[in-house]
């Protein structure tokens, strides 16, 4: 009985008092939330660069500015020095705290534009640059811009003009080639779903400059899953698998064994190539030149073989 009365009378006052800490905490949190944005934008930079794409890392090293990097993405594996640098996430999931702690003056990333995380870095006073990857020409302009932003505009201009010249030279060499004389190439970027590159990509430009023709140029845009039977029907003469080693061999074997592929010319004639470094073909950086040369050499062999049989 007595206990009952206690439990009805006193607790009312006590519970009111008990709310005080909660209210104070809420007010403190609110204050912090209001003040934080202005406080955190005043982070002073330490002058380094963080590169969140393998291609921009390669470009910075090619510009002779690798020493300025204080962080790279988890996928950066070239040049070997890059592997020793601190890993700071990637484009989609940058390690925001590590980047803020490194206080770089510049964060660079390839293509695709800003995302929510990158905007957050910008709000913290860090400059963010997205290097374009939509065409060979824009990739070259990106080298120039990156050189300028990173403090060596001259190096940027030199790298860009060297890159442009190589592509221009190869394109000129194969420009006169008739469409029908260009070997049809299917570039498999992924096997499930079967994926490739469309006519609006720099990879398509690279295939053309190397003297070939992208079998999927008009089937779709960007990186996409093409209609499988359309690829089969067009009967590509060569297939490039953009994975290497055991994985590339397995992918090549699997593709040849898929229903309908046994009769495709590239499979019949044994032209499934899984030994060109995919990073030379798919990374919008300075090493595209090597991909261009490797593919050109292969396609020249195909042309020579064709002419041999024609005669």
């Amino acid at each position: 009985m007595n206990a009952d009365r206690v439990s009805t009378a006193k607790p009312a006052r006590l519970s009111r008092l008990a709310a005080v800490p909660a209210i104070l905490v809420a007010l403190a949190g609110l204050t912090a939330a209001v003040l934080a944005p202005t406080y955190f934008t005043r982070v002073r930079s330490m002058g380094g660069i963080v590169s969140l794409s393998p291609s921009t890392t390669e470009t910075l090293f090619a510009l002779g500015l690798g020493h300025r990097l204080v962080g790279v993405s988890t996928y950066c594996n070239y040049p070997p020095e890059a592997k020793a640098l601190p890993k700071m996430g990637d484009y989609g999931t940058p390690a925001v705290e590590s980047i803020l702690a490194a206080r770089p003056e510049l964060v660079v990333v390839s293509g695709r534009g800003m995302n929510r995380m990158l905007k957050g870095l910008e709000r913290a006073g860090i400059r963010v640059y997205c290097a374009p990857d939509d065409s060979i020409e824009n990739i070259a302009s990106g080298f120039e811009e990156l050189g300028r932003l990173a403090g060596d505009a001259g190096a940027g201009r030199r790298l860009a003009s060297e890159f442009r010249d190589r592509f221009a030279k190869e394109s000129a060499r194969t420009a006169a080639r008739a469409e029908s004389a260009r070997p049809l190439v299917f570039l498999e970027t992924w096997s499930a779903p079967l994926s490739t590159v469309g006519g609006d990509t720099f990879v398509d430009e690279l295939i053309r400059a190397a003297g070939g023709r992208n079998v999927a140029a008009d089937l779709g845009k960007g990186y996409f899953a093409p209609a499988v039977e359309s690829v089969i029907r067009r009967d590509p003469q060569a297939i490039v698998i953009t994975r290497m080693g055991d994985e590339g061999a397995a992918a090549a074997h699997a593709l040849a064994g898929r229903p309908g592929w046994a009769g495709v010319r590239a499979v019949r004639e044994g032209r499934i190539w899984a030994d060109i470094d995919p990073d030379w073909l798919l990374r919008p950086g300075p090493r595209l030149v090597r991909g261009l040369e490797a593919l050109r050499a292969r396609l020249d062999e195909v042309r020579a073989a064709n002419e041999g049989t024609a005669r």
Binding site: E229, R233, P259, G260, W261, G263, V264
Partner: peptide
């Protein structure tokens, strides 16, 4: 399918690969 072939083509030599892909 996305590739338009007449029955003659489809069951002939020209369509063999396509048929082999569609049936499974």
């Amino acid at each position: 399918g996305p590739e338009r072939l007449s029955p003659g083509e489809l069951f002939g030599e020209a369509g063999r690969n396509i048929l082999e892909n569609r049936v499974p």
